[in-house]
Each structure stands twice: as C-alpha cells, then as structure tokens.
C-alpha cells in the first residue's frame, strides 16, 4: 500500500512523528522516500487489508499533526 503525501499539504515532521508512533506495530513495515512533490510511504503488513487499514490510520494521524502545527514545515 503506497501513501503519497503532497508536500504542500503535509508536514514531513508530522509524517515522521506518525511513523515513529506506528513503528512499534508488529509484522508491519514502513519505507519512506522523497519525491519532488511528495513524501512517499510504503506500508507492508501481513495482509493487504491490514496494510490498508494501517495506512489509513497513519495518514489520519499525520494529517492531524500537520494541522495542529499549522500546516507544512517551512
């Protein structure tokens, strides 16, 4: 499951904080890389359904943190 966070909408620090929080989940892997306009996170889990659910939760968490800090990093 691939998440593509647009740099104009998500804070990289928020994504890192969310990844830090989710890192302890068992049997789940996160691979983070950067593209010109996006932060990209690959989520792998024991099943596709589980990967999708974790990806959704991770994205919500990152969005919440981004909004709480007032938007993307400057």
């Amino acid at each position: 499951m691939t998440l593509r966070f647009h740099r104009a909408l998500y804070a990289g620090t928020a994504i890192d904080a969310a990844l830090g929080r989710f890192a302890q989940l068992a049997n789940t892997g996160f691979d983070r890389r950067e593209e010109v306009d996006h932060f990209v996170v690959e989520v792998t889990a024991s099943s596709e359904a589980r990967a999708k659910k974790i990806a959704h939760e991770l994205a919500n968490f990152a969005l919440g943190l981004t909004i709480e800090q007032g938007g993307p990093d400057r």
Partner: peptide, 22 residues
Amino acid sequence: PQHAVYAAAYCFIARCYVWLDR
C-alpha cells in the same frame, strides 16, 4: 483556502479517514 480545507478535515478525522491531495 487551504486553512479552510484543514479546518473541515480536522473535524472529520475522528469520523472517517481523510486524505488530502493537490
């Protein structure tokens, strides 16, 4: 404006999964 999208999105993250893109 983007802040309005954020404000609305924030109200909904407890109820559903919210994904933003441009």
